[in-house]
């Protein structure tokens, strides 16, 4: 406990508030991207429709389910430690990490296929025709959004690993599990970001 706090509870709630404020910042960060998406989609509706038809809906949908499940497993781990079961928390952490890695692997496969199909904005973009310009802008948005989301996932996996390590050291107990809760907020928020991106990328302009 830092010397500026009066109690552990005081510090815990400050940490939680800090994370929520950080998430508000994240809303604006990804929100700017959604703004760009809306702005450009309005100017190139046909191009965005064309591009959406070439997005990999199958992998995208599986990944959504994977991510939702990972959020579920981590929250289950949080419930476990709040009942004083650190072993269960560690198991939940590894389940979460596993699902996160599956998500990233599938994402990698998707990117690999996209690149193979020539869906890279630039001179060799494979979707030709009148709506090519709009479709390219869509794919810029697609790559920026998915890469940034994947970076958040990688940071999240690191944080969950850290939680598992501290849980093994016996840092958490029924009385005190603030870091688990803070990391849970972050992990679920990354989930929320994906739930916003998923319809925009794969469905909205279908």
């Amino acid at each position: 406990m830092h010397f500026q706090y009066s109690s552990a509870e005081h510090q815990a709630e400050s940490a939680m508030s800090g994370m929520w404020l950080f998430l508000a910042q994240e809303i604006l960060f990804f929100g700017a991207l959604v703004f760009v998406w809306v702005y450009c989609c309005y100017q190139h509706p046909a191009g965005f429709r064309l591009a959406t038809q070439h997005a990999n809906l199958l992998i995208g949908s599986i990944n959504t389910a994977v991510l939702l499940t990972s959020s579920f497993t981590f929250t289950a781990g949080l419930l476990a430690i709040e009942r004083g079961e650190p072993r269960r928390l560690i198991q939940a952490c590894f389940a979460t990490i596993g699902l996160g890695v599956v998500f990233l692997l599938l994402k990698g496969v998707e990117w690999f296929k996209d690149v193979g199909d020539g869906l890279v904005p630039g001179a060799h973009f494979s979707l030709t025709g009148p709506d090519s310009g709009g479709a390219q802008i869509f794919y810029v948005f697609y790559y920026v959004a998915t890469v940034l989301h994947a970076l958040h996932m990688i940071i999240g996996i690191g944080l969950v690993l850290w939680i598992a390590w501290r849980a093994r050291r016996g840092d958490f107990s029924r009385a005190w599990s603030t870091p688990v809760e803070v990391v849970g907020l972050y992990w679920s928020f990354v989930d929320v970001v994906w739930l916003t991106l998923y319809p925009l990328i794969y469905l909205a302009a279908l």
Binding site: E26, F29, A32, L33, I137, V140
Partner: peptide
């Protein structure tokens, strides 16, 4: 954060010439 995203897009545009801000590419 909005500036951060803007700079990311600016860098993308500068390096890859992808066309978010380029009228010639829509």
């Amino acid at each position: 954060p909005v500036l951060a995203m803007t700079l990311i897009l600016l860098g993308f545009e500068t390096v890859f010439h992808v066309g978010i801000f380029d009228q010639r590419l829509g």
